[in-house]
Design a protein around this nucleic acid. Structure first.
Lengths: 154, 154
DNA sequence: TTACATGCAAAGGATTTGCACGTCC
DNA sequence: GGACGTGCAAATCCTTTGCATGTAA
């Protein structure tokens, strides 16, 4: 139910540099030092990570704007997917993780820990979470789509 | 399933000025022109509304910071509740609406229309939405809470 | 009168953009 | 060489904050 990849909280995949180069080539992006490092950082991260956090790990090897631009490309190419946990900024994780299993997250409002939720049913979720000792749970479920008008105008 | 309050998309309550004054008094807030107007605007709005939008409707009758400060108090006092639809800013609706029925929203990514969802079950949701002609649906379900460690430390 | 509310200006933090220069293919 | 990537600086947008003044109770 709640996955902790081999001791890690979530999102861990540890791509090799080769994996990453292949991914970049496959998506028509240049294999630059910065892009490779960004993907390594995301892949090493134990939880979805924000752009400023990535930039911090890069210790000024590049400008923040470059990280934003790279992430933007990765998002377009579906190399990473965006995670919004209502923190006032966005986080990113490898899309491969999402592709393998549609999932959501649980964030501890106190310590900031983030875990993956492998299923997608509210009752099952809340029961499993309370069995694990989670309390004071809140959830947000929002849909987007094209309404009937916009769907037919396509 | 999807509620459209008497022709309105969602969130409509149309509080009278008296209602609003009572609410402010009940929560120990001063009955100032600005606070009253802000609540009127939210109450008239057909969908959850953002601070900059509220400020626009006030046509410079007050500073944006005042709107932010008022909203912040309303949030604390549970007069309004916050809606995050991944747009890069937050929206607000009257809490009374939420109190009456826990609900979520559906946003059309094209025209920006927002509707209320009255139930809280993913299958039911998606089926009902597709019956209504919605396509290309995506949803976000995120939990927050206190993890077992943080719960016991209370 | 006194705590609360507001205006104004400045600052913060995430994110975007324009432009010139540098690098991958 | 030409497309793509990056650095730097400036700008944008939402939001917060400090301080002096104004207003509700």
């Amino acid at each position: 139910m709640i996955k902790e990849y081999m001791g890690h909280k979530c999102c861990q995949t540890n791509l090799t540099e080769e994996n990453i180069k292949d991914i970049l080539t496959d998506h028509g992006l240049n294999k630059t030092k910065v892009k490779i490092e960004i993907l390594q950082i995301i892949s090493r991260s134990k939880k979805p990570i924000s752009v400023p956090e990535i930039h911090l790990e890069l210790t000024d090897k590049c400008d923040v704007s470059t990280v934003f631009r790279s992430i933007s490309q990765f998002k377009e190419k579906k190399i990473v997917s965006e995670v919004n946990l209502d923190e006032g900024f966005l986080r990113y994780e490898l899309f491969s993780i999402k592709k393998n299993h549609h999932h959501h997250h649980i964030l501890c409002r106190k310590c900031g820990d983030i875990k993956n939720l492998e299923e997608c049913d509210l009752d099952v979720f809340e029961k499993a979470l309370s069995k694990l000792g989670f309390t004071q749970m809140e959830h947000r479920l929002e849909f987007t789509g094209l309404c009937s008008k916009c769907s037919t105008k396509l």
